[in-house]
């Protein structure tokens, strides 16, 4: 019975894939980004949203726990994951080609978060994150 279990596991995974279960979450607009963040981080007061290319994620500035804060939303499968970015949690923020913002965190499960932003805005967000605007998050 135990030896048959891996076969059943592979069959179930294949079946979900055939049924269209491989889906990446997308954010339609700034309003939805705000709504999702408020669900994931109750109490976060959204002030400004910067959507990533194709709605694959977002940076959100606002207030959290009585202080200014920046949060990031990114997709993990069909779900969105949030992180309120505290300065202590950041290992670095880099800008790459084509508007790539690479956020390196101390988070074991998501050490690197890549967002492709409007190239005109990406350096501004890098500076805001690196300067400690996220300090109070």
């Amino acid at each position: 019975m135990l030896l048959m279990a891996p076969v059943g596991v592979l069959a179930a995974i294949g079946l979900t894939w055939l049924c269209g279960g491989w889906v990446d979450a997308r954010i339609a607009d700034a309003e939805e980004a705000g709504e999702r963040l408020r669900e994931l981080e109750p109490g976060f007061e959204v002030a400004e949203v910067c959507l990533a290319e194709g709605g694959a994620g977002a940076l959100v500035a606002g207030r959290y726990d009585q202080g200014p804060a920046i949060a990031v939303l990114f997709a993990n499968g069909d779900g969105l994951v949030s992180r309120v970015l505290r300065a202590a949690d950041l290992r670095g923020v880099e800008v790459g080609e084509g508007g790539l913002l690479r956020i390196r965190t101390r988070d074991f499960t998501s050490p690197v978060i890549d967002l492709r932003l409007d190239p005109a805005k990406v350096e501004g967000w890098r500076r805001r994150l690196a300067s400690g605007e996220a300090e109070h998050g």
Binding site: L2, A5, P6, V9, A12, I13, T16, W17, C19, G21, W22, V23, G77, D78, G79
Partner: peptide, 19 residues
């Protein structure tokens, strides 16, 4: 209900190793 392939793969892998 709802299924996501990678989520299901992770759950079932955890289950098999747990056994």
């Amino acid at each position: 209900g709802r299924y996501e392939t990678r989520d299901t793969a992770a759950s079932l892998t955890m289950g098999i190793v747990n056994l």
